[in-house]
Amino acid sequence: MKLLRYFFVGIFFGFLLIKAEVISWFRIQEMFHFQSFHMYGIMMSAMAVGMTSIFLIKKLKAKTLSGEEIKIAPKKFTWGNVIGGLIFGLGWALTGACPGPLYALVGGGVPVMAIAILSAILGTFTYGLIRNKLPH
């Protein structure tokens, strides 16, 4: 039943994504055409809050609700960050959505995005099959 808490956080996050309009193809296009501050404001303020939170968590050695020490795994550079990043960027501008928004859109009135999710699962699966042949 511990999992239930992630369900409720997910509900909040899905609600938030729609209300922020970051899941809208129109907003994504507007961002890539540099025609509004909206998306940039969201990204920058989210990063600022995230950064401050992690800084404080580390500084105060904060613990989780169940008393564990909070640990965040560092990320290691691979060429996948570059090549995969570019490929994801292409898909982001095509669908107007990243993975979180795809889920939110399915619930939020663009049901055809369920097909995009299936296709994304297929893309993930394909990566798993051929990853040994890809540069990293």
Partner: peptide
């Protein structure tokens, strides 16, 4: 837009090891 776009999102995020949330 939908199928190829979705495929790029799934393939690209796994290859990059994260998306707009994770990275």
């Amino acid at each position: 837009l939908i199928v190829v776009g979705g495929f790029c999102v799934g393939f690209g995020t796994r290859y990059a090891e994260g998306c707009t949330s994770g990275h």
